[in-house]
Amino acid sequence: MSQFAIALVASVSILTVILATDLGYRKVTGMRILRSVLAVGVIIVIFVHSLPTAGNSVQLQLAGVALGIVFGLVVAAFLPVERATDGTAHTRAGLAYALAWAVLSGGRVLFAYGAEHWFTEDLVRFSIEHQIPGGDVYANAFVFLSLAMVLTRSAVLLIRSRKLQEAPVPVSVQKPRTPRPTGPAPRRRATPPGPWRRTTPAAFSKASDGPSWTRSMTSPWPRPGL
C-alpha cells in the first residue's frame, strides 16, 4: 500500500473516532480515553510491519513522534474540562476542536499525496542524502505521528480531569431569608382630627351670614365655642 493510502486510511479512521468521542458536552471516563487509544493501536497493527533502523530511519520515526506530541498539545488546547453539577469532569468540544483535528489530519494526507505526485524526485533525493531507506520509514512516521497525537491528547485530558476532581468544590454563600410574620396584620390607628381653621373671605358663600369653619392640619386656631 502506498504512503498516501496509508496516511489517508489512518487519518480518516482516527479523525472519525476522535470526533465521535469528543464532540459536544461529554463525560470524561476511562473507556472514552481507552477507545481512541485502541483505534490507533489497530492502525499500528494493520500498517506497521517493520521498524527500519538503517541510516537515519530511527531519527525520522522519532521526528514523527515529536511532531505528534506538538499536534496533540495543539488540539488539547481546544478541549476544555469543566466540572458538572454532580462533581464529575466533562469536556466541551465544538467547531474549533473539529477544525484543528481536520486541518492537522488533512496536512498529513496532503503531504503523503505530494510525496507521490508533486515532489517525488525531491523526496527521493532527500532520502538518499540523509540515508533513509524505502517508503516504510515515512509510513511508520505518519502512523507514529497519529499515535503520539492521540496519546498526548488523552494524557492532557486525563491530567486535567484528575486535577479538577481533586480541587475543592466552591461553596456558594447564600444570605439567610427573613421569615415573614404568620399572624394577623396589626391594625392601623386612626389619625386624630386636626385643629380647626377659618376659611378665607374668598371661600365665603353669598348666602351665608358669616365665616364658615373647616378642619385643617395647618392652622392652630381653636374651634369657636370649644
Results as ranks from 00 to 15, higher is better:
Ala63Trp: 05
Gly64Gln: 01
Gly64Thr: 02
Val65Ile: 15
Val65Phe: 11
Val65Gln: 06
Val65Tyr: 13
Ala66Phe: 04
Leu67Met: 09
Leu67Thr: 08
Leu67Val: 08
Leu67Phe: 12
Gly68Glu: 09
Gly68Val: 06
Ile69His: 09
Phe71Lys: 05
Phe71Ala: 13
Phe71Thr: 03
Leu73Pro: 03
Leu73Cys: 10
Val74Ser: 04
Val75Ile: 08
Val75His: 10
Ala77Gln: 10
Phe78Thr: 12
Pro80Gly: 08
Val81His: 04
Glu82Gln: 04
Glu82Met: 02
Glu82Thr: 00
Ala84Ser: 11
Ala84Cys: 02
Asp86Arg: 02
Asp86Trp: 10
Gly87Asp: 04
Gly87Val: 04
Gly87Ala: 05
Thr88Asp: 12
Thr91Phe: 00
Thr91Val: 12
Arg92Glu: 00
Arg92Leu: 07
Arg92Gln: 03
Arg92Trp: 01
Ala93Cys: 04
Ala93Leu: 01
Ala93Thr: 00
Ala93Ile: 01
Ala93Asp: 00
Ala93Ser: 03
Gly94Lys: 02
Gly94Phe: 01
Leu95Val: 02
Leu95Trp: 00
Ala96Thr: 02
Tyr97Ala: 01
Tyr97Ser: 01
Ala98Gly: 00
Ala102Leu: 10
Ala102Trp: 02
Val103Leu: 13
Val103Gly: 02
Leu104Thr: 02
Gly106Asp: 03
Arg108Asn: 06
Val109Ala: 07
Leu110Gln: 11
Phe111Val: 15
Tyr113Thr: 05
Tyr113Ile: 05
Trp118Asp: 09
Thr120Cys: 02
Asp122Met: 14
Asp122Thr: 11
Leu123Phe: 09
Leu123Arg: 07
Ser127Asn: 11
Ser127Arg: 14
Ser127Phe: 09
Glu129Asp: 07
Gln131Lys: 11
Ile132Ala: 01
Ile132Asp: 06
Ile132Trp: 06
Pro133Ile: 07
Pro133Arg: 03
Pro133Phe: 04
Gly134Leu: 10
Gly134Val: 09
Asp136Thr: 14
Asp136Gln: 10
Val137Trp: 02
Ala139Thr: 11
Ala139Lys: 15
Asn140Pro: 05
Asn140Arg: 09
Asn140Gln: 08
Phe142Gly: 03
Val143Phe: 10
Phe144Ala: 14
Phe144Asp: 13
Leu145Tyr: 11
Leu145Cys: 12
Leu145Ile: 00
Ser146Gly: 14
Ser146Leu: 14
Leu147Ala: 15
Leu147Thr: 12
Ala148Cys: 07
Met149Tyr: 07
Val150Asp: 12
Leu151Gln: 01
Ser154Val: 15
Ser154Asp: 14
Ala155Phe: 12
Ala155Ile: 14
Val156Cys: 05
Val156Ser: 08
Val156Glu: 06
Val156Ala: 13
Leu157Thr: 12
Leu157Asp: 09
Leu158Ser: 15
Leu158Thr: 14
Ile159Glu: 13
Ile159His: 14
Ile159Arg: 14
Ile159Ser: 10
Arg162Cys: 08
Gln165Leu: 12
Gln165Thr: 15
Glu166Lys: 15
Val169His: 05
Val169Lys: 07
Pro170Ile: 03
Pro170Gln: 08
Pro170Cys: 05
Pro170Trp: 03
Ser172Gly: 06
Val173Ser: 04
Val173Thr: 09
Gln174Ile: 11
Lys175Leu: 09
Pro176Met: 04
Pro176Ser: 07
Pro179Met: 13
Pro179Phe: 06
